[in-house]
């Protein structure tokens, strides 16, 4: 089922394959979703406002996002091609170099994304959310991968590892 509001903010969805897979929810974001966490909003907070979770003490940069995924078993890889027994994520970066979004690859090869405070969607390609128009997320700059666990085993892992 198509969603006019989504297609307005991400124009490439008009001609691409996607489906909405959840209601809107302001309580978690794309990083949380990529790591199977729908309880917490993953965000480094400079002002220390409570209600947000960030497992490291680095600020909100591409390097810190990569470190967070490294803590959860991911390592950089070349591309987003589907590989058996491998789970991949793709980090989008805006032209100013700031990370804006992360999508997770499903076993089907399609991608799943939590769009900010909005819906979760399944999308056929990463390019559907790329671009510099409207709310688009810039371009995918980093791929990372880890061994795919059976079922949702990763979702049960404890994510509260704080490092310095």
């Amino acid at each position: 089922m198509r969603n006019a509001e989504l297609e307005e903010d991400f124009p490439k969805l008009k001609t691409g394959g996607y489906r909405v897979t959840s209601d809107e929810d302001v309580g978690y974001n794309c990083i949380a979703w990529a790591l199977y966490d729908t309880r917490q909003y993953w965000q480094y907070m400079r002002g220390r406002t409570k209600g947000y979770y960030w497992p490291i003490k680095w600020n909100n940069t591409l390097a810190s996002w990569m470190e967070v995924f490294r803590l959860h078993g991911f390592n950089p890889c070349e591309d987003g091609e589907l590989e058996s027994d491998t789970e991949k994520i793709a980090i989008y970066v805006r032209p100013n170099g700031m990370p804006s979004h992360v999508a997770r690859q499903q076993e089907s090869g399609k991608w799943t994304s939590k769009l900010g405070k909005g819906h979760d969607i399944e999308h056929d390609t990463l390019a559907l959310l790329e671009g510099d128009d409207a709310d688009e997320y810039g371009e995918v700059e980093v791929f990372m991968k880890r061994q795919r666990k059976i079922g949702s085993a990763w979702s049960n892992e404890q994510t509260a590892t704080e490092t310095t």
Partner: peptide
Amino acid sequence: ETKHTSSVE
């Protein structure tokens, strides 16, 4: 206007 951003900043 901020619905699809994940960055609180």
